[in-house]
Design a binder for these strands. Structure first.
Length: 897
RNA sequence: GGGUGCGUAGCUCAGCGGUAGAGCAUCGCCUUCACACGGCGGGGGUCACAGGUUCAAUCCCUGUCGCACCCA
């Protein structure tokens, strides 16, 4: 016996364990079936499940479970990513709690601590993914720092270095002064900040009382100024170009240069140029061959290392002692101090409030400092070529397609990718340096020692590069490194290229593009043929979820409260094309009703002796009701399948919902009630078998989206062993010959019942009061149908008896029109004649409006001449029907008097 | 400034050339032997606005306005 309600909490963990231990999720490299592969976007090993994960994993699992039922050899590759900064931070916090630091511990001991942490706490997210029901092949779980994946990283680095696609360069890089590492420009978020434009007077050299006023948002960087730029067309400054100014505070003489970068409209039209601390200034500096002086160190504090030597004393303009006092001050303190000093000296002209974009580190939120450093770069532009081509040729398709434009826009203007990070946790760069700075890149110590010996002619001690690689560097290899590359494994041959990549648009550049570049370069094939891009999960009001706003929804709470099936169904139902999801607990609650509905429908079946019938063949069913529900079921199967083929998760969910609730429950089960509660006829027996078949089909259809409740029911009903629904076959539509008649009959029946219900409800006939129904002008077919279904009609429409009208319509009857017939409900004592007249008049008015619309259309000669013939014909038929209905309503109204 | 997407019932969203749809909410009736996380019935929309193409436009094109996001 099924319990009164489905107890998700009691079922899910156990069932999942059954699936996992019985190996139901495992791919089978020896299978003859066509593979279907999805690579999980590896979540951060430090992460906890958030709604974004819940969304993307639900969609992936739905696809995987569906394809698995279709007989594909599915591989959903699980794993996590080592998340350089995030993980290092977690462990550093622990160390801080123990009053120590990673520097005190030393690199090796620190890394041991990180591995220890990973071993103890690194499986949080993978456990949480299980809660969702994700059918990942855990036996193949990988971690980006695993030996195998690390080997892949070294192989790729060495190869690209030898191909000159990885190189060292000294240029400006986005620097996170909090974590003291370079970051990629993708990890920078520009935020509007209210600041000021400080207008500062720079005295022109060798001239009395001549000045040029520069406007700057960053006065503290003036210590590193090496020029002032003005626009070449700017008449105000034309005469000054080629001359010099004396930089206040340092006394440095710097040139006034003409450069189009300077915008005459902005500020004063003259800008100070600090090539070592601004990307635009860097370009100007290169064009004019300016010195590049660093004045901020790796913590963004003032450093005098580049300028300490050349400080000059200039009366009332520059005092080396003041500048030296700035050494070690933070950016913010230095700014205050410098502005105050300029004001004291009389060089501050104006402070203009000004809102501008300030780069912030995505992680940690520190203000990013452009810094001149030597880093490792990857030649992304070269690698991007084939990736662009793959999308152009259609080898890789984005769904929805418009994301291809975003992809192209970024890929065609791609910048060198800074891949080195000044961290300890990550793949250490396989580069070693000789005493003279000579670089040796190789697989390991022995390899580079050999190279060094060849180079120097003797054994020389080498020093390894301290830095590690960007975490995305290893993620980029994920689709093949997880399969064993660089070794030639059977898995690599079988599962690469994978099929679909599912992710959010925010990750197209970080990950999708880079996987494509690396996959094409090393595997000579793109890593997947389809990229499905879904939206973002937002809160009920459409706001982005964020920790600071505190509007985040915890998926684990939802799973606890409503069960995984309800959460998954809600997610799919809300996943439209290219749209964000407005998500809230209320939405899950609403959709949980569907899980309950399914459960209760199953209970009804159980109570009515529905059991699987071996050898049942739906194509042989005779009863109209049976034939009808089989054809409706087939329609649902077709709809659900094509929805999944098109990645329309919302349509898949709604096709299931509509069929199960509005067709199977509302009509099929209701229509079978008289049969099931009556004596055991052949028809009843057949319909029990049909109903069992439909229930089986429903459970299969829903398995990908709500795996727990469906498996439970499937097993309870004896359709198959516990845990095996997920490997049962995906249903295919059944064609029943001659079903058209059955469909027409049940269609008529449902309309008949609805029609009577409507009249009764509108005339306020209490449900307790049964009514006879007399059929006026009914065709023999209708009369035949009515008598065949009289018991069902009686029960569902509260009808006492039903038959053809013999005499005149009794006075005081309610009437309604269905096709050719008028249905008469003689309820003289209950019918308010005025109310009935009003009701019929309203019906008539509606019908006349429709006729008017149709007639107008048909009255247009152009429509007859140029409209599609089938549309014209259909419209003509409609008019005839509408006119018939209208006439019958008029007659009914006339009879009321 | 450049780009993309979106404005359809009170809310959330489907539909996208030929009779405007769903879920939720709302109103009325119903403790009917699967389900009140329920059943039955009803009301509710100049499909943002203005032009154009077409026999026919919510749907295609152009423009305007509003909202969101991405890039600079």
């Amino acid at each position: 016996m099924l319990s009164k309600t489905f107890q998700a909490a009691d079922t899910e963990a156990q069932l999942y364990e059954t699936w996992e231990t019985e190996g139901r999720f495992a791919a089978d490299p020896h299978s003859k079936a066509t593979p279907f592969t999805i690579m999980i976007p590896p979540p951060n090993v430090t992460g906890t499940l958030h709604m974004g994960h819940a969304l993307t994993m639900t969609l992936q699992d739905t696809l995987i479970r569906w394809r698995r039922m279709q007989g594909r050899d599915t591989l959903w590759q699980p794993g996590t990513d080592h998340a350089g900064i995030a993980t290092q931070l977690v462990v550093e916090r622990q160390l801080a709690g123990e009053k120590t630091t990673r520097q005190e511990l030393g690199r090796e001991a620190f890394l041991e601590r990180v591995w220890k942490w990973k071993g103890e706490s690194g499986s949080g997210i993978t456990q949480q993914l299980r809660r969702l029901g994700s059918s990942l092949d855990w036996s193949r779980e990988r971690f980006t720092m695993d030996d195998g994946l690390s080997k892949a990283v070294r192989e790729v680095f060495v190869t690209l270095y030898r191909e000159k696609l990885i190189y060292r360069d000294r240029r400006l890089v986005n620097w996170d002064p909090h974590f003291r590492t370079a970051i990629s420009d993708l990890e920078v978020e520009n935020k509007e900040v209210r600041g000021n434009l400080w207008h500062i007077r720079y005295p022109v050299a060798d001239a009395k009382d001549e000045f040029i006023v520069v406007a700057t948002t960053r006065p503290e960087t003036m210590l590193g100024d090496t020029a002032v730029a003005v626009h070449p067309e700017d008449e105000r400054y034309k005469a000054l170009v080629g001359r010099s100014v004396v930089l206040p505070l340092t006394g440095r003489r710097i040139p006034i240069v003409a450069d189009t970068y300077s915008d005459p409209e902005k500020g004063t039209g003259a800008v100070k140029i600090t090539p070592a601390h601004d990307f635009n200034d860097f370009e100007v500096g290169k064009r004019h061959n300016l010195p590049m002086l660093c004045v901020l160190d790796e913590g963004a504090a003032v450093t005098l290392s580049d300028i300490g030597e050349e400080l000059q004393t200039v009366e009332d303009l520059a005092d080396p002692a003041f500048v030296r006092s700035l050494d070690g001050l933070s950016r913010e303190e230095a700014r205050k101090t410098i502005v105050a000093e300029l004001e004291r000296l009389g060089y501050l002209v104006e402070i203009e409030p000004h809102t501008h974009q300030v780069p912030h580190a995505e992680r940690g939120g520190a203000v990013v400092e452009p810094r001149l450093t030597t880093q490792w770069y990857c030649d992304a532009a070269t690698l991007a070529g084939p990736a662009i081509e793959a999308v152009e040729k259609g080898d890789v398709t984005f769904v929805p397609k418009q994301w291809e434009n975003t992809f192209f826009a970024w890929m065609r203007d791609i910048q060198p990718w800074c891949i080195s990070r000044q961290l300890w946790w990550g793949h250490r760069i396989p580069a070693w340096y000789g005493p003279d700075g000579e670089v040796f890149v190789g697989y390991d110590d022995a390899d580079v020692q050999q190279q060094a010996k060849t180079h120097y002619g003797e054994d020389i001690a080498l020093i390894r590069d301290e830095d590690v690689l960007d975490t995305w560097f290893s993620s980029a290899l994920w689709p093949f490194s997880t399969l064993g590359w660089p070794d030639k494994t059977p898995e690599l041959a079988r599962y690469y290229p994978t099929d679909v990549l599912v992710t959010g648009f925010d990750i197209i550049f970080f990950w999708v593009a880079r996987m494509m570049m690396m996959g094409l370069h090393f595997m000579k094939a793109p890593p997947f043929h389809t990229v499905f891009i879904h939206g973002l999960v937002r809160d009920e009001r459409g706001q982005k979820m964020s920790k600071s706003k505190g509007n985040g929804i915890d998926p684990l709470e939802l799973l606890d409260k409503y069960g995984a099936d309800a959460v998954r169904f809600t997610i799919c139902a809300l996943t439209g094309v290219g749209r964000d999801l407005k998500f809230g607990a209320k939405r899950v609650e609403d959709h949980r009703a569907f899980v309950t509905k399914l459960w209760n429908a199953a209970r009804f079946c159980e109570m009515n002796g529905i059991k699987p019938v071996t050898g049942f063949d739906p194509a042989t069913v005779q009863s109209p009701l049976g034939r009808w529900i089989i054809s409706e079921t087939s329609k649902a199967v077709t709809e659900a399948t094509s929805a999944l083929e098109a990645y329309r998760f919302d349509e898949y969910a709604s096709a299931c919902y509509r069929f199960i609730w509005n067709c199977f429950c509302d009509w099929h089960l209701e229509l079978t009630k008289p049969l099931f509660s009556g004596e055991e006829t052949a028809e009843a027996k057949e319909l029990r078998a049909v109903t069992a078949w439909v229930l089986d089909t429903i459970l299969r259809l829903l398995q990908p989206i709500m795996p727990f409740v469906t498996d439970t029911l499937w097993h309870e009903f004896g359709f198959g062993p516990r845990g095996e629904l997920m490997t049962a076959a995906w249903p295919t539509p059944v064609s029943v010959s001659g079903a058209e008649e059955a469909i027409a009959e049940i269609d008529w029946l449902t309309r008949f019942i609805t029609e009577i219900r409507t009249v009764r409800s509108e005339m306020n006939v209490p449900p307790s009061r049964l009514s006879p129904v007399l059929l006026k002008d009914a065709s023999p077919i209708t009369i035949d149908r009515a008598s065949r279904w009289k018991e069902t009609i009686g029960r569902m429409a509260r009808v006492s008896e039903i038959g053809a009208l013999q005499n005149d319509v009794p006075h005081g009857s309610a009437q309604t029109v269905l096709d050719e017939a008028t249905l008469v409900l003689p309820l003289a004592d209950l019918i308010d004649l005025d109310a009935e007249r009003t009701r019929l008049s309203k019906e008539l008015a509606k019908a006349e409006v429709e006729i008017e619309k149709t007639a107008r259309k048909l009255g247009n000669p152009d429509f007859i001449a140029r409209g599609k013939p089938e549309v014209v014909e259909e419209t003509r038929e409609r008019l005839v029907t509408q006119q018939g209905d209208c006439d019958r309503l008029k007659a009914a109204l006339a009879r009321l008097g």
